[in-house]
Design a protein around this nucleic acid. Structure first.
Lengths: 120, 120
DNA sequence: CGGATATTTAAGTCTTGACTTATATAAGCC
DNA sequence: GGCTTATATAAGTCAAGACTTAAATATCCG
C-alpha cells in the first residue's frame, strides 16, 4: 500500500499520533481508538498491520503483548515527496539556511544556471 | 476531501508534479496524464477539480483554456502534519540549524527542560 | 493442563471514489 | 450564426478497502 494511501485513513493517522510520544501496546491503542472512533479490536489490529507493513510502525513482543512504536521510514518517504514542493511555501529561507536544513543533499545535482540570478 | 486522501491518488500526485515547474493548461495535463495513465479527459478534469477544491491547485482562465498551477495551501497542511514527527528522522540537526530551518516558529512554546541535555 | 488475557487472521458485507460515456457550457473563428 | 476547440458536469458501473463477527494463535497463571 502506498504511503499516502496509508495516511489517507484518519484512524491510522491518529494511531501514529498516539505512538508519537512513545511505544504503546496494541491493547492500549485499541482502547484509545475504540473510544474515539467506535471501531472493534479487530479493525484496529488491521490498521496496525497496515502501518507495520508500510514502514510507519514497528512492533516488538512483550509476552502476549505487542508494543508498537513509530517507524520513521514511512514518514520520511512522505516528507521526501512533499519536499520537492517546499520552495512553494518556504522561499524565505536564504541559501545557507536551506543548505543546513536540507543537509546539503541537493548539492550533487545543483542546477548551475537558474540560481538566484543575483549574478548571472 | 482530506488532504491525505487527495494525495493518495497517483494521478493527482503526478498532476502536482507536472504543475510544479509552472502553470499548465488543462488540456496539456490531459495529454500528459492520458499518455501515462491511459485515462480520459473527463477523468483528468475530475482530478483537477479535486485538487482545486482541496487547496492543492489554482486555476485562472485564458480564453477557453484553464491554466492550472500549484497552490501551496494543501501541501503546507500535509507538511504541518508530517512536521510533528520530524524529530524522528532529523535529530541530527543542531539547535541553531533547526532554528534557522524552522524559521524560529517553535520558539514560543519551547520546552524549557528536556532540551539537548548538554547542560541541564 | 485448562482457563484467562492479548492479539492476529479469515471471511463476508457495504460504502466510497475512480473510472467510463454522453452531454453541457463557453470562448474563438469564419 | 454555426462550427471548432477547450473544459466541465452528469449519470452510471465497478473495484478496493474499511468495517463486522467468528475463529485461530500464543503467552501467562493457578
Amino acid at each position: 500500500m502506498h504511503v499516502f494511501e496509508v495516511l489517507a485513513d484518519p484512524v491510522r493517522r491518529r494511531i501514529l499520533e498516539l505512538l508519537g510520544p512513545g511505544e504503546m501496546a496494541s491493547g492500549e491503542v485499541v482502547e484509545a481508538i475504540g473510544a474515539e472512533f467506535g471501531i472493534t479490536q479487530a479493525a484496529v489490529s488491521q490498521h496496525l498491520k497496515v502501518l507495520r507493513e508500510s514502514g510507519f510502525a514497528r512492533v516488538r513482543a512483550d509476552a502476549q503483548r505487542r508494543l508498537y512504536s513509530v517507524d520513521a521510514a514511512g514518514l520520511r518517504t512522505v516528507d521526501a515527496w512533499i519536499g520537492q514542493f517546499r520552495s512553494f511555501w518556504e522561499p524565505k529561507l536564504d541559501a545557507l539556511a536551506t543548505e543546513i536544513a536540507r543537509g546539503k543533499r541537493d548539492r550533487r545535482n545543483a542546477p548551475l544556471t537558474k540560481r538566484t540570478g543575483k549574478r548571472a
